[in-house]
Amino acid sequence: MGNLKASVKKYEEEMIAFRRDLHQHPELQWEEFRTTQKVADEMDKLGIPYRKTVPTGLIAELVGGKPGKTVALRADMDALPVQELNEGLAYKSLEDGKMHACGHDAHTAMLVTAAKALKEIQSDIKGTIRFIFQPSEENAKGAKAMVEQGAVEEVDNVFGIHIWSQMPSGKVSCVVGSSFASADIFTIDFTGRGGHGAMPDACIDATMVASAFVMNVQAIVSRETHPLDPVVVTIGRMDVGTRFNVIAENARLEGTVRCFSIETRERVKKAIQRYAEHTALTYGATAAVDYQYGTLPVVNDEKDALFAQKIIQDSFGEDALLQEPPTTGGEDFSYFTEHTPGCFALVGCGNPAKDTEWAHHHGKFNVDEDAMKMGAEMYAQYAYNYLNN
């Protein structure tokens, strides 16, 4: 354990430099070609064999000196279509309208550093460590594609990390049970009958229909789901109308559903369909609902989460362990735990002195880089302890 901590500390400057390089050159989902190659170059230096996945991403394997199980470590790599607002930052994004606004650059750098530390004790490792560098997390499709390309075949356990600006630097959380919510997307098209704005009696106003639905749909949360079962239904976009004096014939709404229960998820889906159809019927319009399943909830295996909590306390002290409440944010890490046991940890990076408490996906998001060595060590310690203990 001490050797891994010392190794991570030794590589800290390299880790920060690697992260800053990725931050300056952000790549959106399925476009992470440069990032994938940068990781491949590091694996080549270490002599760790790997294969690239399609179209982007990489899976590497470190085979220990003794036989044993296989544990997988996952880091995501994609950036967001967000304009960086961190003026004066030496490593500010060089890509207009693109930014690592969620910390995936830090995840990638931390996992590369963990690979370096584990390589130094390869002969002592009982089993195999698989490093999964995943593309396209932000659209919830990358993990599924990696699973389809064999990322968790013959894997006994999987562990992932997300840097977390809502938690203070120096704290790590890995809760038992629900961690991230499911994240679904729905689109509703209301069709009425358009016409002149001065003659509403001859029309069916799609604006009225869509507005009524937006106001009514929150009753699903307040009246059709259990009050102790968290659910979010958000309408994030509404496209309706063409001109000030034209009554709209069509309206399109786009929204998302977040929850922690598969049963609740199905209930909400059916309710959205019912609310849309009945609201449209009330006004004489029609409704077409397209509901797309996104990620499953991330639910940490109890045994694995407690195992991770012990590592946090042993590595960083009892005060470092935090029980962060579940978030209704989505994480496609759930596609990995759908196939094999595992858990997902949060590493705090919020530091007011360094202005790193901005929300994820904000243009001023940044990472307290002092927290990255904790993330790299968590990756390495989890894999080593799982295999050797």
Score class of each variant (00 low, 15 high):
Lys116Glu: 08
Lys144His: 04
Leu89Asp: 00
His107Lys: 09
Gly65Met: 04
Gly88Ala: 07
Asp96Thr: 10
Lys119Glu: 15
Glu87Thr: 13
Lys141Thr: 13
Val54Pro: 00
Met110His: 09
Gly127Asn: 03
Pro55Ile: 00
Glu153Leu: 10
Cys102Asp: 10
Ala106Lys: 02
Phe131Gly: 07
Val158His: 11
Glu153His: 09
Gln149Ser: 04
Ala151Leu: 07
Val152Arg: 08
Ile129Thr: 09
Pro81Lys: 02
Pro81Val: 00
Lys69Ala: 11
Ile129Gln: 09
Ala101His: 06
Lys69Asp: 09
Ala140Tyr: 15
Arg130Pro: 11
Ser93Gly: 09
Asn139Leu: 13
Arg74Gln: 04
Glu120Asp: 14
Thr56Val: 01
Glu154Tyr: 04
Gly103Lys: 05
Glu153Ile: 02
Gln149Cys: 03
Ala151Phe: 13
Leu111Ser: 12
Val71Ala: 14
Val54Met: 13
Asp78Gln: 01
Pro55Gly: 05
Ala114Gly: 11
Leu118His: 04
Glu137Tyr: 01
Ala75Asn: 11
Gly150Tyr: 00
Lys69Val: 00
His104Cys: 11
Gly68Cys: 02
Leu62Asn: 07
Val147Gln: 05
Ala75Phe: 08
Gly127Ala: 02
Glu61Met: 02
Ile132Gln: 11
Ala117Gly: 13
Ala60Arg: 06
Asn157Glu: 15
Glu137Gln: 05
Asp96Ala: 15
Leu111Ala: 12
Ile132Trp: 10
Gly103Asp: 07
His100Cys: 04
Lys116Ser: 12
Glu137Lys: 00
Ala72Ser: 13
Thr70Ala: 02
Asn139His: 10
Phe159Asp: 03
Arg130Phe: 08
Leu89Ser: 02
Pro67Ile: 05
Leu62Gln: 07
Ile59Pro: 10
Glu154Leu: 03
Gln134Asp: 06
Met110Trp: 11
Ala60His: 09
Ala114Phe: 12
Ala114Ile: 10
Ile132Met: 14
Lys119Met: 11
Pro67His: 10
Ile125His: 10
Asp96Gln: 14
Val112Ile: 15
Glu87Tyr: 07
Lys116Asp: 12
Ser93Arg: 08
Ile132Lys: 07
Ala109Cys: 13
Lys141Ser: 14
Pro135His: 09
Ile161Trp: 07
Phe159Val: 01
Lys66Leu: 14
Lys126Pro: 00
Glu153Tyr: 03
Glu153Asn: 15
Gly103Thr: 01
Arg74Ile: 05
Lys69Leu: 04
Val152Gly: 13
Lys126Ala: 15
Ala90Trp: 04
Thr128Ala: 01
Lys141Leu: 15
Thr108Ala: 15
Phe159Tyr: 15
Gly127Asp: 05
Ala72Val: 05
Glu84Thr: 08
Glu61Thr: 14
Asp76His: 04
Gln149Met: 03
Glu138Pro: 09
Ala75Glu: 10
Ser93Glu: 06
Val112Lys: 03
Thr56Leu: 06
Glu153Thr: 12
Leu94Asp: 14
Gly142Val: 00
Val82Phe: 05
Leu89Glu: 13
Ala114Glu: 12
Arg74Met: 09
Glu137Thr: 01
Asp124Arg: 09
Lys119Cys: 03
Leu58Glu: 04
Gly103Gln: 02
Ser165Tyr: 06
His104Phe: 10
Asp78Thr: 00
Asp105Gln: 11
Val82Trp: 01
Pro135Ile: 00
Thr56Phe: 08
Ile161Met: 11
Ala101Met: 06
